[in-house]
Amino acid sequence: MADDQQATRISRRNFIKIMGVAGAALASRRLLNGRPVRADRPAAATAELPPPPAKTEADVLLRMQEELARALKKPPAERRWVMVIDLRKCVGCHACTIACVAENKLPPSVVYRPVIEKEIGTYPNVSRLFVPRPCMQCEKPPCTPVCPVNATYTNEEGVVVVDYEQCIGCRACITACPYGARTSDFGYTYTEDTPVADGLIVGREKADDYERASNFEYGKGYDRPRSHGSPIGNARKCHFCLHRLHEGLLPACVTTCIGRATLFGDANDPDSLVAEMISKPNVMVLKEELGTKPRVYYLV
């Protein structure tokens, strides 16, 4: 018992000595090189953690950006723009819808890419599914042959476009679209008819200016007129942001997708991400039975 007490005393004394030396050493080290002091990790815990990845996988956006640059070097007719939407990754944030509205300065009543929300099952076994729905850019589009003045057609890159100056606004193309992917511009703005009392809405006038500014669809500057004139009165639709593509930029909805659920590229490039994705067995298109051959694919 006496030996034990002696051992304890020695031990306590030794401990105080060690702590004193160690403290002085650490303090001097900090003073000397200014580095933070960090406690050593227990050896056992470090051994259980997985090793850090040797190389971080690049963001798919960077890959698609490179592929886009590659595709733009080819003649337009050799490109086949395709969009792939991975429904397992879509979180229903609607960022793509908003990005599209901002990019194309879409007024109220016009939408190119709504996100359809579906509720599956009944309480308590309920799940939700989000289906972004851009224009399907069909290879066999039912909307183009009905146009009485050839105002809507498939361009050489395979994108279904609308010539705003040619369109007479009959809306036959909207009726013919099986996906509800076209909307008519009835001439609204978001800021018009809002209260005008000073200070009530900050920046109202600037916002109005923004809405009137050109939207650059189809590579042209379409100022929004205050009365009548295109694109007011026209059928409007998603065009895969052709004006961005030609500048080497991905469509606005693709770059904005927080879950990287929307992929875009040239399916004629066998090394492209979209070519890889549309060859997967879990790929599908909307209303396949109609035979319109959409260029928008969904991964399920």
Binding site: V149, I168, C170, D185, G233
Partner: peptide, 20 residues
């Protein structure tokens, strides 16, 4: 029609395969 002032296009620039 959204652009009734362009009806002349149906006569001068028609898509005659369109029923309309």
């Amino acid at each position: 029609l959204g652009h009734m002032e362009r009806v002349w296009k149906v006569f001068l620039q028609p898509n005659l395969l369109s029923v309309m």
